[in-house]
Design a protein around this nucleic acid. Structure first.
Lengths: 310, 310
DNA sequence: TAAAAATACTCCATAGGTATTTTAT
DNA sequence: ATAAAATACCTATGGAGTATTTTTA
């Protein structure tokens, strides 16, 4: 026994002979002549330790081992061809896996709709969803642990993405609005007093999570000569709103978050008179340059999808 | 593209590199050096039209196509190895198909028990059961449409099997008994009158079905100076008994058939005084000489099985 | 006697080896 | 500086071809 590796060619030859029960015609079908086919079958039988065919010098019949193997071998060969097909499908972006990060705010926005639509159009692409903050997404991209991600940054700021070999597509642009404890006077005041607002303790994410957005909020305070007191930091938007509801302070949140209604919290947009220089945020879809087809498919889908914030 | 036939070797090389993510170590595992491995992977990628790995000169990572293919290819390779294992199993008689013929009488005898026992001991041998008369079994053997069969012939006669390249094993030897219509006087007579019996019309199978047995019955009549009137011929033992029940005549049936009780029919054995020269029959298991392992397994099993008639 | 499988041999394509180069860490 | 992949080139195994023999239906 040379080696117990029986290759596709040998099995194909077996199937040809088994189906035609004629070495000459089988060789023809295999685009070869019958002597090497005879030898190949003999070698295959030697390797298996079993006769596959019962033959006299005029006729060929299946031996028990041959009869038992014909169907399984056919099936195995078909699966082998399917592997090449699968490879092409992956290359064309029809099949594959997409590791998709997203900041929690987008969960309230268009993301669920997009995902449903994308799964419908590309059922053989498996989307692995991961809620990850903007900064962690950046690290994940560097380590190739993420294929695409929705991340947050302040409007107008460079998304800080071009330098890292990443591409970006803006999918949402919206103002930040105030989240206020229901019982708080500001929640009901007919006119929002900026000095009063800026005196409230703030619930906000830690700066490293999304520096540009953090800075945009602080810049607004500074522009009005104030420095906010940070009552509590929290990472998840859910947590921030919960803390507001508990009365720890006020918070600036992207407008989509208002879709998450919560007892004890009211949302309030800045009036147009105060909106000049007020912080706004963008949500961008980010991916590595020259993306694999699956990622390109997702980007194309999102680009074509109706996005509320333009 | 040379040819769209990607063989086992190439896929194995792919798996080695994909698992170790290191051409040098992968080559080691494949008992080769890395340059040909590099070339082989490049060729594979060319054939698939897809990169399988993303590599710089120091490091190797799975490309999307590679990641998608790794598991399916592993599985496919395992199935490929299973084919060789299957071949060996067939050769050893552990796996396969057994086309088994049997005369209907044996269905009342030990056959069901044997089959149950055989399936238990050899669950991966698929037994194809076919109720076939003795003469048709002979034809089927000649055409290789049957692997083994239980057939009937008269006791003491040569089973007519040795000349045809067949082997035989006697599994049952038994007298023929009378099947009588319930209402018939002979059914209740304390002493069986041979002249009366021999005057009754006979229900019997056509001679070609089992010539030696047919002749043995007629010889018994002739020995007593009688010639039977054949009322009706029928092939299935079930049918013969039904005809007896309908009063068309009497029949000689193998003793095992008495296990099939039927309204309107009584069975009666010949008394010892009349048994001299009375017809008896043998049931033999028959198979082609130098049988494949699966057939040998079955013969061995039957040989070792408890058989009522010795 | 003719059709088909087996055998004998010849050849070349390619899998694999050795030596060397390139490059990223 | 070094580890590791890529490249260049060589070798030889074995898969496929041509010619011939054998067998049996």
């Amino acid at each position: 026994m040379t080696n117990d590796l029986i290759d596709v060619r040998a099995w194909r030859q077996f199937v040809a002979v088994a189906e035609l029960l004629h070495f000459g015609r089988a060789a023809q079908r295999l685009h070869m002549t019958h002597p090497p086919l005879t030898m190949a079958i003999q070698q295959l039988e030697r390797r298996l330790g079993q006769p596959l065919f019962v033959r006299n010098r005029r006729t060929v019949m299946l031996a028990p081992a041959g009869a038992a193997l014909l169907q399984p071998v056919r099936q195995w060969l078909a699966q082998g061809e399917a592997l090449s097909v699968l490879a092409r499908a992956v290359g064309d972006g029809d099949v594959g896996r997409l590791r998709l990060g997203f900041v929690s705010t987008l969960g309230f926005g268009p993301l669920p709709d997009w995902l449903r639509g994308f799964r419908e159009r590309h059922p053989r692409i498996e989307v692995e969803l991961r809620e990850v903050t903007t900064d962690v997404q950046r690290q994940a991209f560097a380590r190739s642990e993420l294929d695409a991600g929705f991340m947050l940054h302040a409007s107008g700021m460079d998304s800080g993405v071009e330098d890292a070999g990443l591409d970006a597509l803006r999918v949402l642009e919206e103002p930040l609005v105030l989240a206020l404890p229901e019982a708080h006077p500001l929640a009901r005041a007919t006119r929002l007093s900026l000095p009063v607002l800026m005196a409230q303790p703030l619930v906000i994410f830690p700066r490293p999570i999304a520096p540009s957005l953090f800075d945009a909020v602080l810049a607004y305070y500074h522009r009005h000569g104030a420095v906010p007191t940070i009552a509590q930091e929290a990472i998840q938007m859910q947590t921030i709103v919960n803390l507001v509801s508990a009365g720890l302070g006020v918070a600036w949140v992207p407008e989509v978050v208002t879709r998450m209604q919560r007892r004890g919290v009211v949302y309030r947009a800045l009036p147009p008179s105060l909106a000049v220089g007020a912080p706004r945020c963008e949500t961008s879809l980010v991916w590595r340059c020259e993306p694999p087809a699956v990622v390109a498919r997702f980007v194309d889908f999102v680009r074509a999808a109706p996005s509320p914030g333009g």
